[in-house]
Amino acid sequence: MPFEASFVTRALWGGLLVSGICALVGTWVVLRGMAFLSEAMSHGMLPGVAVAALLGGSVFIGGAIAAVAMAVGVTALSRVSRLSRDTAIGLLFVGMLSTGVVIVSHSESFAVDLTAFLFGDVLSIGAEDLAILAVALVVVAVVAVVFHRPFVALAFDRRKAMTLGLRPRTANFVLIGLMSLAIAASFHVVGTLLVFGLLIGPPAAIAQWASRLPTVMIGAVVLGALAVISGLLVSWHLDTAAGATISLIAVAFFFVSALLNGVSGRHRTVGIAEERTT
């Protein structure tokens, strides 16, 4: 049995922690339509990871800093120019990814590390990685609870958020911080090219059926966990890439959900009535 091997057991626990992080953050990403930004942030991590590795620092911190810089840059560029937000995201996305590749190209030792960065290496997760992921999950959960009301107001009625003194700009910055944390914590498991699957797939699948935000989050956690477990099993028996298999199954959940939703004629999005601030 695959889970009798210690490295697979660590991969399982690491994947479950990551699925929890991605489910909580991904719900807000889906709700606010920030999928393109989150995808760009995941690729924009490369310069930070490369510099951190060259300097002997933490690639987790380096990646998180780069992801935040990407998001801040998008906001700044959108305000000081006539470019649309999507254009700013696209330009910074390509610019930061290219910068990372240039940095990596100067070091031959990055050949294997770059592959793991792009596609993940869930089977190499160690005890230290599990500790970092556990702390990240606790931080995400606490912040999600504390900022739930500002996040809801920001997602559905920014003007009302300002009227109620909920500081939408601060809430937006905190949400971007959570996205950065989720992406930085997840890239070791599924890689930056595939983290989008766990971050978006489960929440988007559940959002078609659930009517409340807590239900979407809980459902996304369950689907994410199922993607991790089934992905590791399929990878073990079919000898496929573990991270890619996990991400593929997470995305497949969305398409199955969309198909069933279309067949049943049930067109539901996340309900607002019970979640609005007053």
Score class of each variant (00 low, 15 high):
Lys160Cys: 05
Gly126Phe: 10
Val80Phe: 06
Val122Ala: 12
Phe93Met: 13
His148Trp: 10
Gly95Pro: 08
Arg79Ser: 07
Leu97Phe: 12
Val101Phe: 05
Val139Gly: 04
Leu164Asn: 10
Leu91Asn: 03
Ser109Gln: 10
Val68Asn: 04
Asp129Phe: 00
Leu137Arg: 04
Gly90Ser: 14
Val101Met: 14
Gly73Ala: 06
Val112Cys: 00
Gly126Arg: 14
Phe119Ser: 01
Ser105His: 07
Ala116Glu: 15
Gly126Cys: 05
Ala111Val: 12
Val138Asp: 05
Val68Ser: 07
Arg159Val: 07
Leu92Gln: 09
Met70His: 06
Asp121His: 07
Leu133Tyr: 02
Gly95Leu: 10
Phe110Ser: 08
Val74Ser: 04
Thr87Phe: 01
Ala64Arg: 02
Val139Glu: 03
Val94Cys: 13
Ala76Glu: 09
Asp113Lys: 11
Ile65Cys: 13
Ser98Thr: 13
Thr75Met: 09
Val80Pro: 04
Val145Trp: 09
Ser84Trp: 01
Phe151Thr: 08
Ala134Phe: 02
Glu108Lys: 06
Arg79His: 11
Gly62Arg: 10
Phe119Gln: 00
Leu91Ile: 15
Thr115Ile: 15
Thr87Glu: 09
Thr75Asp: 13
Arg85Asp: 06
Ala131Ser: 08
Phe147Cys: 08
Ala155Ser: 14
Thr75Ala: 03
Ala144Val: 09
Val80Ala: 00
Leu137Pro: 01
Phe93Asp: 13
Met96Ser: 08
Arg82Asp: 08
Met70Gly: 02
Val140Phe: 01
Asp129Gln: 13
Gly165Ile: 14
Thr87Ile: 13
Gly73Asn: 12
Thr163Val: 15
Val101Arg: 03
Ala76Cys: 07
Leu97Tyr: 08
Ala155Phe: 03
Leu154Arg: 05
Ile89Asn: 09
Val72Asp: 05
Ala66Met: 07
Asp86Leu: 05
Leu91Lys: 06
Ala69Ser: 11
Ala111Asp: 15
Phe151Tyr: 11
Phe117Tyr: 15
Ser105Ala: 13
Asp157Glu: 13
Ala136Cys: 03
Leu92Met: 14
Leu154Ala: 06
Val72Ile: 15
Leu83Trp: 01
Val74Glu: 04
Ser124Cys: 00
Ala76Lys: 09
Ser81Leu: 07
Arg85Leu: 03
Met96Asn: 01
Ser81Thr: 14
Val152Ser: 06
Val142Ile: 15
Phe119Ala: 05
Glu128Met: 03
Leu77Cys: 11
Ala144His: 07
Ala153Met: 06
Gly73Lys: 09
Leu130His: 02
Arg82Pro: 02
Val102Phe: 12
Leu83Lys: 04
Thr87Trp: 00
Phe147Arg: 02
Ala161Phe: 12
Ala116Asn: 06
Gly95Thr: 11
Val74Asn: 07
Ser84Lys: 11
Thr115Gln: 10
Val143Trp: 04
Gly126Thr: 13
Ile65Val: 15
Asp157Pro: 00
Leu92Ile: 15
Pro150Asn: 09
Val74Gln: 08
Ser98Asp: 02
Leu97Arg: 07
Ala136Trp: 02
Ala155Tyr: 01
Leu130Ser: 06
Arg158Gly: 07
Thr163Lys: 14
Ala141Arg: 01
Ser124Trp: 04
Met96Val: 09
Gly90Tyr: 07
Arg158Pro: 11
Gly73Phe: 05
Ala66Asp: 09
Leu91Trp: 04
Arg149Met: 05
